[in-house]
Design a protein around this nucleic acid. Structure first.
Lengths: 136, 136
DNA sequence: AAGAGAATGAGAATGATTCTTATTTTTATA
DNA sequence: TATAAAAATAAGAATCATTCTCATTCTCTT
């Protein structure tokens, strides 16, 4: 007899799914990833819950890449790289964001600072290789 | 007799306008600002030329604030602050972005890095005051 | 002055995101 | 356990920033 543990709440599934990936997906990406387990999940539900999580501070938005918002369940301060070729977003966990600047920023501006985002842009390895091939 | 120097090209006006402001305007903001001098300028022209300037590297996009893209004619590396209350974007010219990290980032990721964006978020002075008043 | 090519205006098209509403699921209460 | 109230969801419509289309207007060259 199978367990009667049914997972009715799709909300948890959305958060889990985001927490299990490192691709910094868009809402549509997540919707696609979730469909295996929840074939009837609605795109609106994904959007709705993502903004809820954002408000709750459970996740972060990385802003839009090519006009599409990307999300990250890792809310700890870390550095990102965005490839201008393919739109891939990578974590750069080796680097530490310059926390010293935060106090300095508050001091010189009078603004109360609650967040910091350091993002590099450029061309990722696989796009570099692809560009190379195209020249041949 | 008035000078016969007519400024037919609106393109230059758009770039000049962006260069003369520090508010990091949106396309619509610019369109509004330009209407004094060019009452018949089209919003499509503003958008069209902004993406041209971006491609040419004459201006930078700061990404979207509240779903609306914001632009900056200052392409030199500098730090931004975005107010989550009013959406205002401020320069923090006192701070220098950590250029040392860029080489480190290339080293550890293999990505070719072409740009860097350091952005703080929080509450600006005038929004802090307004919040204060609301409590009274 | 005429023709070719670039720039523009106006409005339609696009597409990501949000909203609405009817339905389903969950929780609270008896 | 039944039942009512509250929360969550699906589906599709609505919104709105941005891009596209195409007819017209400018600009430059000859």
């Amino acid at each position: 007899m199978e367990q009667t543990v049914k997972q009715f709440r799709k909300r948890n599934a959305i958060l889990s799914c985001l927490r299990c990936t490192h691709v910094h997906p868009s809402a549509e990406d997540l919707h696609r990833m979730l469909q295996a387990e929840h074939p009837d999940i609605s795109l609106a539900t994904v959007y709705r819950n993502l903004s809820l999580f954002k408000r709750q501070g459970l996740i972060r938005s990385l802003g839009a890449v090519d006009g599409i918002e990307r999300f990250d369940a890792d809310t700890s301060p870390h550095v990102h790289f965005i490839c201008t070729g393919c739109g891939r977003v990578l974590d750069l966990p080796q680097l530490t964001p310059p926390q010293s600047l935060e106090a300095e920023a508050e001091g010189c501006s009078g603004c109360r600072i609650t967040g910091c985002q350091l993002t590099f842009t450029g061309v990722c390895l696989s796009c570099q290789q692809q560009n190379q091939e195209e020249l041949t």
